[in-house]
């Protein structure tokens, strides 16, 4: 049956358009306006052209933050995606324990960001935190407020703790959708465990895995609260990720112009990466069916 084509139906999405315009498009336009002007408060603006963009493009501070951000996202993706798949593969497929695992895995996802940050901030403290105290007692030097490596390990482990179960839940949903017939066919062919994973499970999970990668990338690329609560961007600037730097610039120093130019470039990077992911995802779906 052909779909009925009626362009008047577009009017039904009008409320959404108005809402998005109010909450996203108009504020974004304002940011663009700020990015080409300078202000000393009092809502008085002076035209500066593309100066802020030029300044930001040559700002070591921004490139360093971008480098740290990319490193952070790369590390957590390399850990969380394989780990999530591994957990999903080893979860009970049905019955009480399956539901039990699902509930337990959803728990970290329900905890607000700042609470996760606070938990780890205390957990890692050498004087009162279980982790910090234990490591210290074992003679391992660990102090996330002074040691760069310890700070990075802490925020990475914290993110893995918080979000791996999202990947696992998505991968589990992908695994559940594979019909038994595939496994039976594999058994008849005496396929090895690896072959089953490589040729049945992985291709069938590809769609949800792409969504997991996209979600985890976006979230980690925009992360603010957790590292801010734990390390405050320190020691020095060692864990100052993009959004922490941006907030410092926009609200701490009230440099609206440079912060606006910074935000626009940040936005463009996110936009292009999301577009690549989206294109890859839709092409995968087309290939599959």
């Amino acid at each position: 049956m052909d779909k009925t084509l009626n362009h008047k139906a577009w009017f039904l999405v009008l409320p959404v358009i108005v809402l998005v315009a109010f909450s996203a498009v108009i504020p974004l336009m304002t940011v663009v306006n700020y990015s080409v002007q300078d202000t000393f408060g009092n809502n008085q603006f002076f035209w500066v052209g593309l100066e802020w963009f030029e300044e930001m493009l040559h700002s070591e501070r921004m490139w360093d933050a971008l480098g740290r951000q990319l490193l952070f996202s790369a590390i957590i993706l390399t850990i969380q995606i394989p780990l999530g798949i591994f957990v999903a593969l080893n979860m009970p497929k049905s019955g009480f324990w399956s539901s039990f695992c699902l509930v337990m895995m959803s728990l970290p996802l329900l905890i607000p960001w700042n609470v996760v940050g606070t938990i780890w901030q205390i957990f890692g403290r050498v004087d009162i935190g279980l982790l910090g105290y234990t490591l210290d007692a074992l003679g391992i030097s660990y102090n996330y407020t002074q040691d760069i490596f310890a700070a990075w390990v802490t925020i990475i482990v914290m993110d893995v703790w918080h979000w791996t179960s999202l990947v696992a839940l998505l991968a589990f949903a992908g695994l559940k959708s594979i019909p038994d017939a595939y496994y039976q066919a594999a058994k008849i062919d005496q396929a090895s465990r690896w072959a089953i994973f490589r040729y049945i499970e992985l291709p069938k999970m590809m769609g949800v895995l792409m969504i997991a990668i996209l979600l985890r990338f976006m979230d980690s690329f925009m992360i603010y609260t957790e590292p801010f609560v734990v390390t405050g961007g320190g020691p020095g600037n060692a864990t100052t990720l993009l959004s922490i730097d941006l907030v410092k610039m926009a609200l701490g120093q009230f440099d609206l112009g440079p912060a606006a130019a910074f935000s626009i470039m940040y936005y463009l990077v996110i936009l292009i990466i999301s577009w690549v992911f989206y294109t890859v995802m839709t092409n995968l779906e087309k290939k599959e069916g």
Partner: peptide
């Protein structure tokens, strides 16, 4: 509209 700090170049850009 004043709070949005419009300028002619940005207005033309968006138009």
């Amino acid at each position: 509209m004043e709070w949005m700090a419009w300028t002619w170049p940005t207005a033309i850009f968006f138009i």
